[in-house]
Design a protein around this nucleic acid. Structure first.
Lengths: 326, 326
DNA sequence: TATAAAATGTCAAACGTTTAACAAAAATAT
DNA sequence: ATATTTTTGTTAAACGTTTGACATTTTATA
């Protein structure tokens, strides 16, 4: 693999000059620039990022820690992050932390060892103390990680409210919430609170079912089936869209008509859902805006590690009306 | 950020000794090991990967170039790649090349500059000559890239055959293929060939509709609607599952019953489809096996760049029977 | 206690780049 | 022709690690 010295020799100039050309610094004649560029092309030269970074340049690498990219929501988010960062000349190291705190810790260590310029973290694991010690720019999606790590999220409380309003407007009176197992500090809590806040102003039945986030779809379906079979509800709010899909499926199996017998509101509103399941009424998180915001903050911190940022940045959500609520 | 020298000072040993501890080389007493480890923990030390790699060690980074992770198929594939590589102590730099050949080239250059140990490439772009010049281990998924880059794929021909057999067995006689725009060397061609191979042994009607791979779901739906509205077909083979979802939706809108009036076979069989759309009969690509194979080959090449590998590795597919074919 | 073996240390070069300081050469202006 | 400016070169240190050569100290063995 060609090195800077090889280029220098080939172009008949000094290594310093080549470096000057690459970094566009100092004064240079067009002629030498041309010579050097020619040699670079000729030898298919790529400056060694490792050496550059070691010498103090940025690595242009961002670590992205998420629960997993198989889920359409995070899939879309990663795609968005990747795209936006590419345009700003950064690359991402993808870390699927899953539900595995140990893995997340290992990844964090690794990212530090690799001297990434910053980290975007949106995992579901709690109590990763390492985030506090990590002395590099970090932005979090929707989770509290440590005192000085800004949290970007969409307005979960508002989302819960919108969901409740949609169900109310559709005339539902016997309401049910289906949500992942509730953890302290989980953003889904806010969704519930927003929902309840609207409901409690009316005199309505409201039940809550928790289904572990990591349960398989089959297991989830089973619980949903039990729930629906009782036929005691006419409105459901699922705190994620995928679970909503399961509800729709089970409802169909049980000959429960949506929206006639049952109304349904989901949460997330990914492109995938909008494209392939437009009948589902759902609360759309503005993924693109969230990512723009996270990247913006992250780059600010990278530019100036001391810069003061807010603790929270909350972006508005939108109701996407489908036919699952009249 | 603590360096090796800091550790040496703190532990009261020489830098060499610390390096020996880290790399577990030379002879060392338990006592010093303990001291050094303690200092490393105390200072939260992470060896600088950049320096190590510069000195000749591997970067433990693998570039992964795919069309995009928003698609469930590639989402699952990335997740699988990430998982398997993590267990072997490698990390991935994720590159969504989309349909953008320019972006793919830029990424390739960047990966080389970053001295990744190897690349897994499964993009849809053609004629990226840079792959030929790239002098590092590369494994391709389902595409021809260059002479000495092994291709791992699932058996597209067999997949086409299975699809055809499923439709035949369901009694369909007026068949339709819906596929992305055909490019030369595209793996979907083999799916078509396998399909046709079975069909031509019978005297049946067969039409083919191409819909550009990158068309939006709405546009695809429109074309599908036109197609179905004619009501001249009773069996459809879609060369990807997402398109199948659109077909199911349009069929429902037109009151065409699946599988009574129309049978449908998709392609890919991701976990997502199996979990959330089990009614769809589809051909499952063994993503996990594909990834295992790719990683296996890649690591072999990394270990021994000269090692001879086959040009093609083809893994069997499976029919997953749903209710979309009786 | 002498001797061998094991553990540690010192030193220095190397990986490929950046960058500062300074000197020399070439081009331009007066 | 001289003075000035621009371009290029030389040299060397630095980034943080690895590794080899060799020397010294400590520990175990006979």
């Amino acid at each position: 693999m060609a090195t800077l010295d090889d280029i220098a020799k080939m172009a008949g100039v000094s290594a310093t000059t080549v470096s000057r050309v690459i970094n566009n610094y100092g004064s240079l004649s067009e002629k030498t620039k041309t010579k050097v560029f020619a040699a670079m092309k000729e030898l298919n030269y790529q400056p060694n990022s490792l050496a550059r970074s070691l010498k103090g340049k940025k690595t242009q690498l961002i670590g992205v820690i998420l629960p997993g990219v198989g889920n359409p929501f995070f899939g879309q988010m990663v795609e968005e992050i990747e795209n936006q960062l590419f345009n700003k000349d950064f690359r991402i190291i993808l870390c699927n932390a899953g539900n595995d705190a140990k893995k997340e810790r290992a990844y964090l260590r690794m990212l530090i060892a690799n001297r990434v310029d910053g980290i975007i973290a949106g995992s579901h694991n709690l109590n990763i103390e390492e985030y506090q010690k990590a002395d590099l720019p970090i932005i979090s999606f929707d989770r509290y990680l440590s005192e000085n790590i800004p949290i970007v999220s969409s307005d979960n409380y508002q989302g819960g409210q919108l969901a409740a309003q949609a169900l109310l407007a559709s005339g539902s009176k016997k309401l049910q919430i289906i949500t992942g197992r509730n953890r302290p500090n989980s953003p889904t809590n806010d969704r519930l609170n927003g929902f309840k806040n609207i409901i409690k102003q009316h005199d309505l039945q409201l039940d809550l079912t928790e289904i572990d986030f990591s349960a398989t779809p089959n297991i989830k379906s089973l619980k949903i089936k039990e729930l629906l079979a009782k036929k005691t509800i006419d409105g459901i709010f699922c705190t994620d869209d995928l679970t909503s899909l399961l509800v729709m499926r089970q409802a169909k199996n049980l000959n429960i008509s949506i929206p006639n017998d049952l109304r349904l509101v989901g949460y997330d509103g990914t492109n995938f859902i909008q494209d392939y399941h437009p009948e589902l009424t759902t609360i759309m998180q503005p993924i693109s805006d969230i990512v723009t915001m996270m990247i913006d903050l992250l780059l600010k911190r990278i530019d100036d590690p001391e810069c003061q940022l807010e603790k929270n940045y909350t972006l508005p959500v939108k109701l996407i009306a489908g036919t699952s609520t009249i």
